[in-house]
């Protein structure tokens, strides 16, 4: 899981230069999140972790922080009962 968070952090850090992003830090509160980053985030999650972001996943809270994105991916990867 830490490896996954590290990958998410690495990706986001490219947008937030010179800022050590905490795992629970709200990236929307930091500014610089526009529609293009929002879309790139979806592409990153899908490509990096091999999941499909569905309509129901499109919730800002799912992309608000490293922890939130990690939870989203974890939920997507969990075997369905």
């Amino acid at each position: 899981m830490d490896d996954r968070k590290q990958k998410i952090k690495l990706f986001l850090s490219r947008f937030f230069r010179n800022h050590d992003l905490a795992h629970d830090e709200d990236i929307f509160a930091l500014g610089f999140v526009n529609s293009l980053l929002a879309m790139q985030l979806v592409q990153f999650v899908e490509k990096e972790f091999g999941v499909t972001v569905e309509d129901d996943d499109l919730d800002l809270d799912n992309f608000r922080s490293i922890d939130a994105i990690d939870r989203l991916v974890e939920g997507k990867l969990a075997p369905t009962p």
Binding site: S35, A38, V42, D55, L58
Partner: peptide, 17 residues
């Protein structure tokens, strides 16, 4: 298409992409 409020940030943005 897409969720309410995500029409520009995701649907139109990827179309424009």
């Amino acid at each position: 298409l897409g969720r309410v409020g995500f029409g520009f940030s995701h649907v139109i943005s990827s179309a424009l992409d």
